[in-house]
Design a protein around this nucleic acid. Structure first.
Length: 669
DNA sequence: CAGTGAGCGAGCTTCCGCTTGACTT
């Protein structure tokens, strides 16, 4: 009789099968095999009439979940059942994390396993697999309970809050613990930009000495010159600093040009920088975004192909750790390419930065006891670029520190103080293999210089600068922000972004994530009606609860009762069903609200549907007035909620109008 | 009389996390 070993991924199954050899059959579940019904038609007939059928969770009876086999998984389950019948023994070898334990339990249920045998391994080497097979354990039902609690909570909160949005804003909208927290981050940043008032200041620099270097004026008559950090987001300046007029700046330049500079002090401090850790899913997405200009989705698609081709380890991971074998391979690769001294004596080890990490997998790295160099892989195109990035990052992670000296020079021209900073690299260390970003081009190497010296001022100039608005998130930087807060998982980072886009909450402009009016309105509504969902702390609290469930200090029922029955449910019940409105400081006299499911501009007793491609930042007061005056207003005749619309406007028929709402009208509840 | 349009009511939408490959565009 053979032993059936069940894993999640088919690639993993092939590899393990090769290591286990005869007597073992290894099959893949392709992820979860059962789930709560997504919609009513997935609910079996005998439960369809139940009041909880829409949720798939019988809240009144201990939050009992109803599990069904999704259509897409029917074939897999059938095959696994047949394989299990033929096998003498079944070992559940799904991933060693919370969801993996849950999948193992579902499989045990579906296959009717009496005493389910569980094995877990964290690296795929012959040794690790043999060890794991020899040391199976029973299922961890507490961990399974934690996973189920997570699932039920996400269902109840998501399916509880989304209908509020249908009533208040429009049909088909969605809210959830992860997507709404992500959207709130974007909305917060967008509001910061909308409220931001830029301020101008002067930066005065001089070219000094031979060879020349650049120094910037820091003080005049002992008073500090305004720099960006002296300004508030409303454009006000810290009263203690000097904000020069153009005339003053010009005078200062003329003053500098006429006199030599005295070196007051030279401070040199050595520095060293450690290499970045091997890639996790989020850091890979971040680096591929910056260096290869890939969107997270593209990165994951290419990485999936590299994984299936056997070039890299699993690409959905939160662990930056390398196995001993991989550590040795990385060190060997570094030494082969950069010399025996390119690695420190002791291997480096890496641990995850976030406490929510589950660490079921290794870091993303080249496979094998000896890494194939990018040239040896025979890969081409984007796949080759991504492999190269992963290869270099992995090798660099075992190399020596970058070392150098930072020098800070203070100079004086009369009562004007200038500062110059420079950086000299004494040992490039790991940067020979990998660098996160291009080195700063402004970075200068200062010539040898001593306190007390006098140097000629060769030139001076003043440059008008403005304070920068808070930067928008890129897709990858949003993922990084979410991961830091413990929101979302490696397997979902890319899909969170696509959910936000599909709902019309965000668009991507020049590789930046931009929130739409709809996204702002949804966040505004949720902030009042479901504040937990826009708060990353909600996930943090949930994770803490789940850990306690896994450790047996909290029951599933206590957690769900406390979170749902005593908190979320009453909040949702009390939630207002009327549409949110946004008042914007730079748009006095107008308000953005909702009419017929569409973001709409209200003002002056008139209204206008906002064109869907008009982003919040692009709505100027002039444009708002033009829209309200009826220009480019899609005047599709539809019942108006309460705003009084001039009859003529409502009857203006639009032909071939570009902004026809795609969603059907729904009556207000 | 036929065609059109307004109005009504019923039914639907939705979560997160795990995995590929089958679909379009």
């Amino acid at each position: 009789m053979t032993t059936l070993v069940l894993v999640e991924s088919p690639s993993k199954a092939r590899k393990i099968a090769a290591y286990l050899g005869q007597g073992y059959q290894v099959r893949a579940s392709l992820g979860h095999v059962r789930d709560l019904p997504a919609k009513k038609e997935d609910v079996p007939a005998r439960y369809a009439k139940e009041p909880w059928a829409r949720l798939g969770v019988d809240v009144a009876h201990g939050f009992r979940p109803l599990y069904v086999i999704p259509k897409a998984k029917a074939g897999v389950v059938k095959e696994l059942r047949q394989a299990a019948e033929r096998a003498g023994r079944v070992i559940l070898a799904t991933d060693g994390d919370r969801e993996g334990e849950s999948i193992a339990w579902h499989l045990a249920q579906l296959l009717g396993l009496k005493d389910p045998e569980r094995m877990v391994f964290h690296e795929i080497t012959p040794d690790a697999i043999r060890q794991a097979v020899a040391h199976t354990r029973p299922l961890d039902y507490r961990l399974v309970g934690a996973a189920e609690t997570r699932r039920v909570l996400d269902r109840l909160s998501g399916y509880g809050a989304s209908p509020l949005l249908w009533d208040a804003i429009g049909p088909g909208l969605s809210a959830g613990r992860v997507q709404s927290a992500a959207l709130a981050l974007l909305a917060q940043r967008e509001h910061a930009r909308l409220n931001f008032v830029a301020a101008a200041f002067w930066r005065v620099t001089a070219r000094i000495g031979q060879p020349t270097f650049t120094a910037a004026v820091t003080h005049v008559n002992g008073q500090a010159l305004a720099t960006p950090k002296d300004f508030g987001p409303d454009g006000t300046v810290n009263p203690g600093v000097l904000l020069m007029t153009p005339e003053q700046a010009e005078k200062l330049v003329a003053f500098l040009k006429a006199r030599p500079a005295a070196v007051q002090s030279v401070e040199a401090t050595p520095f060293s920088t450690r290499p970045p850790a091997p890639f996790t899913t989020s850091t890979l997405q971040q680096a591929a975004s910056i260096q290869l200009k890939l969107a997270p989705k593209q990165t994951m698609d290419e990485a999936q192909r590299l994984y299936e081709g056997g070039f890299i380890t699993y690409m959905r991971t939160d662990s930056p750790g390398l196995s001993d074998e991989a550590t040795r391979a990385a060190r060997a690769a570094a030494q082969a390419a950069h010399g025996p001294d390119s690695v420190p004596e002791r291997p480096r080890t890496y641990a995850p930065k976030t406490s929510t990490a589950q660490e079921a997998h290794e870091a993303i790295r080249p496979t094998g006891r000896a890494f194939r160099t990018p040239a040896e892989t025979g890969l081409a195109g984007t796949q080759a670029d991504l492999y190269d990035l992963i290869y270099r990052r992995t090798v660099a992670s075992q190399m020596t520190d970058l070392r150098g000296t930072r020098t800070q020079v203070t100079l004086a021209v009369g009562r004007v103080t200038l500062g110059a900073s420079g950086r000299v690299i004494t040992d490039p260390g790991f940067t020979r293999a990998y660098q996160d970003e291009e080195p700063d081009p402004d970075e200068q190497a200062l010539p040898p210089i001593q306190a007390g010296e006098m140097h000629d001022v060769r030139d001076a100039s003043a440059e008008r600068r403005t304070t920068p608005a808070p930067r928008r998130y890129s897709e990858a930087s949003l993922v990084r922000a979410l991961e830091r807060q413990g929101v979302g998982r490696p397997s979902t980072f890319a899909s969170i972004l696509s959910t936000l886009a599909t709902r019309g909450y965000t668009t991507v402009r020049q590789r930046q994530l931009v929130v739409t009016w709809l996204g702002l309105l949804v966040t505004q509504y949720l902030g009042r009606s479901a504040p937990d969902l826009v708060d990353p702390a909600f996930t943090a609290k949930m994770e803490a609860d789940l850990d306690r469930i896994a450790e047996g200090q909290l029951t599933r029922l206590e957690c769900l009762t406390g979170t749902w029955t005593d908190s979320l449910d009453p909040t949702f019940r009390r939630a207002p069903r009327d549409a949110p409105t946004l008042a914007l400081p730079k748009l006095p006299g107008v308000v953005v609200g909702v009419r017929g499911g569409q973001p709409t501009l209200f003002g002056d007793g008139r209204l206008a549907t906002l064109p869907p491609d008009l982003l919040p930042e692009d709505l100027t007061p002039e444009l708002a007035q033009a829209l309200l005056a009826g220009e480019r207003v899609p005047a599709r005749s539809r019942r108006t909620p309460k705003a009084d619309v001039p009859k003529g406007k409502r009857q203006r028929k639009a032909r071939g109008e570009p902004h026809t709402p795609r969603t059907p009208r729904r009556s207000k509840g």
